[in-house]
Write a protein that binds this DNA or RNA. Structure first.
Lengths: 203, 203
DNA sequence: CGTGATATTGACCAATTGGTCAAAAAGAAA
DNA sequence: TTTCTTTTTGACCAATTGGTCAATATCACG
C-alpha cells in the first residue's frame, strides 16, 4: 500500500515547474530529442535538483503523458446520449477546437507520441480509448439509425473530428505559413468546421 | 559551377540504402531522436562508411526532407482549373489518401518536422507551398463564386483534405487501436471521405 | 535557537554520440 | 597483372548525456 507522505510545498511547486518546462521542451523536440539539461534550464533548476523530484527523464515524460491522455478524453466523455444529436456533435467539435486553442503544446506532445508509434501509451489506446470511442460510436450509430443524423461511420466521424481540430495545433506553423499574416487560423477553422459538420451530419 | 563527377554505381546504391534506412528511423524517432548508429545498422553499413556518403546526420535528414517536400506537393499541383470542380477536388482527396497508403513513413517524417516547428523547411512552406496553395485556392474560389461548388473557404478546405487524409498515416497506430482487428482503416476512410467531401462541396 | 529533515549543487561517472583518420581491401581502368 | 581510385573499417576523439554523490544550505518544527 502506498503510504507516502504528502508532498511538501516546495515539492509541489518544483514538480509543477519541471512538468511545465518538460512540456515545453518535449513538445518541441520529442522525448528522445530532449535533454535533461534543456528541461532543467527551462525550469530554472539544476540538473541534479530536477532529478531530486523525478527519478528519471522517462518518469517526467510518462507523468506528462498520463496526465494528458486523461484530459484528452474529457471532451468526448461529455457527449451526452440524451442530447440533441447534431448539437452534441457540434458541441464536441467546439470543445476539441478549444483544446487546440488552449493546449497546443499538449496536442503536439500527444501527436509526436502517436506518430512515433505510441510506445508508452499504446496499451491505453487499445483499452481505455477504444472502450470510450466504441461507447460513443454506438450512441452515434443509434442517432443515425433513427434518422436523426446522416448515415455515416461513427468511428471515422470521430477520427475526422480529431484530425480536423488537432491539425490547427499540431500543424500550426504550416497553417500560419500558408495563410500568411493577419489571419486567425482558429477563428476561421471554427466557421469552416461548423459548416463542414452541419453539412456532413444533415440527415 | 558544379563540375562534380557523376556518382559511381556503388555510390548510387549506398546513398539509396542510407536514405531508405534513414527514412525508417527518422520517421520513428525524429531527427534528434535518431543516432547515426541506428541508421548505419538499419542500412547494413558501418558508421564511418555511412559518413563517407553523407557529410553529416543533418545532411541525410535535409536530403530526405527536400525530396519529400517536392513529392508532397505533386497531388495538389495536379489539380486542374479546367476540370470539373467536384471531380477535381474528389480526385485530389483520392490522391492524398493514396499518398497516405503508399508513403506512411514519409508522411510521419513530414508530420514530425512540422509538429516540431518545421525548423528546416519553414522558409519553403512560406514560399513555395504558400504560392501553390494560394494559386489553387484562387481556382477553388472561382469555382464557388460561379456556384459550381459550395461557398467555402478554399484554404481551410485544403487544410481539411490534408488533415483528414494524412491522419491515416500519421495517427495510424491510434486508428488501428480504436478500430480493432479485422478492419481496413484506409478502405473505410476512402468511403467516408468520399461522402464527407461530396456533402461539403454540394452547391 | 537548536536540531533534524529537506533541498540544492559542483564535481564526477560511465556510456553514448557525431564525427575523424590512417590503413587495408576492393574496384576499375590501363 | 599492375596501378590508381574508391570503398571500407577498427580505433579513436572530444563533447554530450543521463544520472549519482557527498557536502552544504535552507527549511520547518519544537
Amino acid at each position: 500500500m502506498n503510504q507516502e507522505k504528502p508532498r511538501t510545498r516546495i515539492q509541489e511547486k518544483n514538480r509543477a515547474r519541471v512538468l511545465e518546462a518538460a512540456l515545453e521542451v518535449f513538445s518541441r523536440h520529442g522525448f528522445r530529442g530532449t535533454t535533461l539539461d534543456e528541461i532543467a534550464r527551462e525550469a530554472g533548476l539544476s540538473k541534479p535538483n530536477l532529478l531530486y523530484y523525478f527519478a528519471s527523464k522517462d518518469e517526467i515524460h510518462v507523468t506528462l503523458l498520463e496526465g494528458l491522455v486523461d484530459r484528452w478524453l474529457d471532451p468526448l466523455r461529455e457527449m451526452d446520449a440524451g442530447g440533441d444529436p447534431r448539437d452534441e456533435l457540434l458541441a464536441y467539435v467546439r470543445r476539441k477546437l478549444q483544446m487546440s486553442r488552449d493546449y497546443p503544446r499538449e496536442s503536439r506532445l500527444f501527436a509526436q507520441e502517436i506518430v512515433q508509434g505510441a510506445p508508452r501509451i499504446l496499451e491505453g489506446l487499445a483499452t481505455d480509448l477504444k472502450a470510450l470511442v466504441d461507447e460513443k460510436a454506438a450512441i452515434i450509430r443509434g442517432w443515425s439509425d433513427a434518422g436523426q443524423i446522416a448515415d455515416i461511420d461513427p468511428h471515422h466521424l470521430i477520427f475526422s473530428i480529431w484530425s480536423l481540430t488537432q491539425h490547427y495545433a499540431d500543424f500550426d506553423v504550416q497553417v500560419r505559413a500558408v495563410l500568411g499574416e493577419g489571419r486567425d487560423p482558429l477563428a476561421e477553422a471554427e466557421v469552416f468546421l461548423e459548416t463542414l459538420f452541419k453539412r456532413l451530419l444533415a440527415p
